[in-house]
Structures are given as structure tokens and as C-alpha cells.
Amino acid sequence: MKTFLILSFFALAVSALPLEESERINGENGWYLPQEDGSFEWVDMDVAEKWMEAQEQLESRGLTTVPVKFYLYTSSNPTKGTKITTTTNSIDASNFNAANPTRFVIHGWTQSYTASMNKDICSAWLSRGDYNVIVVDWSRARSVDYATSVMAVGATGKKVAAMINFLQSNYGMSLDNLYVIGHSLGAHVAGYAGKNTNGQVHTIVGLDPALPLFSYNKPNKRLNANDAWYVESIQTNGGSLGFLKPIGKGAFYPNGGQSQPGCGWDLTGSCSHGRSTIYYAEAVSVDNFGSIKCGDYQDAVSKECGSTYSGVRMGADTNAYMVDGDFYVPVNSEAPFGMIN
């Protein structure tokens, strides 16, 4: 089935003359899709959207599977996750404590629950006190075909929402101190989770939300500012692997949001893309990323926001109550990356 879908996608792509390279605008009239070897293949927007419509029908009819697993980390088991399921037997046998705030962490394409971003973010939160950190492992993200992984985003988000709803209804987990944190495709999984919970999630943090095959003018099919009470986006490879236009209520642009210092040539963008997770883990544990308020995101990208620090720090807990708009974030080329004003 998977092979048929991939072949169908590329059959559509070659059935019409693609846009000339000079006419291509990533995210506006098509996308450069990342490949397993780090290269990119262009697909026109109309071709991609036809394929996605066909694939969505298969997904909705249950003709594809979307396995999702959950691993709980707490101060009692900070380095070895306990696999949990939506059953009382499973949760009762774990260290889950509804009295503590909960954090869900969701990886992106080609990753798993053992990815370094999960370890870093989990460790950062547990260094601050007692939390339930639940790392989401969604195996469809490990498809070598990016487009196939994209099509599992919605169903994966619904499964995350189902776990949230289960913990809320059966254990009294509060949504008022719940964060859902996702990187790349995982950011959009977080958005779908927020769209499907029984009540409003407090905060979603999108770490360089993936751009390929997601359209800015279709917010119901991506992470958007209404998916939680507060949505923050940390955008580090904008216009390539990640969105450049602001996604969250608070949108932060380290080094202007397109490329990151210390990443060298970074031809695939993977270094800059991954920096969002490293910055966030540091922000949680150290709270050291000063920011400058911008008039709009274009000013942030062009680094024309002045030199006066705003008092807002990227990734800070208090942002949900004080942040609205776009921020330029100066960063160092090596750790510690944050600059405190």
C-alpha cells in the first residue's frame, strides 16, 4: 500500500510540467520536500494537494495504521521511561502523579522517543522539580518518505489527545498546567492534539514547525495560535524546513529565524532546524534567551527590531500571560546559546 501511494504521488508530479525553478517559492506555490539522503525534491502545490486529498481518504477509512506509544519520565525514573497506555492498570502501575504539572514531548520526522531532543527537554523539565514528562513515540515519523509521515500527523495528534483526555477524566490531570511540546512535524501533531482535547490545553510550544506540505493559509491543517490558550513558536530554519511566517501567539526568531550561527554551510538546514530543540531545552533549564520586540516578523527576519531588550525571554513559563507578537532573539554560536540582557 505504501509503495502504491508513493508511486501515485510521483505519477501526479510528472503528469504536468512543474514550475520553473525561478518561479518556485517554498511554501507559497509548492514545496521542497526533504529526502532521506538530505536532498530536496520540488513538488507543485496543486499536485501535492491532490495527492494529500487522496491519502486523507485512505487515512479516514482506516486503511493505514498509526501506532503511537507513550513513555513516562518523572523524578522517580528520570532516565528510563515507563511505557504507559490508556488503561487504569497501566497508569496505576506507573509514577504518574496528577498533582504535578504534565509535559508531552513529540519528536519529528525520522526520529523516535530515544532522540536526543527528548532526553534534553525531559532532563530540562525534571531539573526544575516534579513533573510528569510523557514522550510520544510515533513510528510513522520514521517512514523514509516524508509525505507518508505528514499524512499520519492528524491521526497521531488525535491519539495524543486521547491520552490527554484519559488522564484528565480518570486521574484529574489539569489542562491548566499542561504543555505539549513538538518539533518539526511533531509541532503539527501537537496542534492536532490541541484541536481534539476535551477542553483547552494551556500551552503548546512549536519548535521550528515543519513547512513542507503545510500551508500557512490552512490553519486547521497545521499548528495555529488557537490550538491552545497560548501557542509559542521558536523558528530557526524558516523558509526551508520550518515556517518563516509566525505560527504562534508568541513567535520567536533566533538569529532572524532562517539560519543559526555555528551551523556552518548547513546545506540541508538540519543543523538550524534542530537548534530549536537545543535552544528550548536550554531556555527551560537556564531561562537565558533575551528578546527584542519587533513590529512584525519581517523586521525579526531582517534583524531590524532595534537594540532594546523587551524583558520577555524565549521559552519562559511566564510568556503565556504576557506575550503577543514577534520577537528577535540574539544567540551565540555555541553553548550557552542564550544571551541575557
Rank of each mutant, 00 (worst) to 15 (best):
M151F: 00
A155H: 07
A141Y: 10
D176G: 13
V150H: 01
L178Y: 07
A161R: 00
M163E: 03
N165G: 12
A161D: 06
S143N: 15
S169V: 09
F166Y: 15
A155V: 11
Q168M: 12
N165S: 09
N165A: 12
V150S: 05
L167I: 11
Y146E: 00
A147I: 07
K159M: 07
G182R: 06
I181R: 02
A190Y: 08
A147W: 00
V189D: 00
N165P: 13
M163K: 03
H188M: 01
A190P: 08
V180Q: 10
R142Y: 07
I164Y: 00
N165W: 02
V189Y: 01
S143Q: 09
L185I: 14
V160D: 04
Y171R: 03
N177C: 10
D145L: 05
A141L: 13
T148D: 08
K158C: 09
M173G: 04
G154M: 13
V180S: 11
V180D: 08
I181Y: 04
G186L: 05
F166D: 01
D176M: 11
A147M: 06
M151N: 03
H183M: 15
N170I: 07
A161M: 01
V144M: 12
L178W: 07
V150E: 06
A152V: 04
R140N: 15
F166H: 07
A190M: 08
V180L: 09
H188E: 07
A155D: 15
R140Q: 13
V150N: 02
A190E: 03
G157C: 05
V150Y: 04
G182P: 14
H188K: 06
L167K: 05
Y179T: 15
V160N: 03
R140G: 08
L167V: 08
L175P: 02
G157K: 01
G172K: 06
S174A: 11
A152M: 09
H183R: 12
H183D: 12
V189P: 01
K158M: 13
I181M: 06
S184Q: 04
V144E: 12
S143Y: 14
D145M: 08
Y179P: 06
N170G: 10
H183C: 13
A141E: 15
G182N: 09
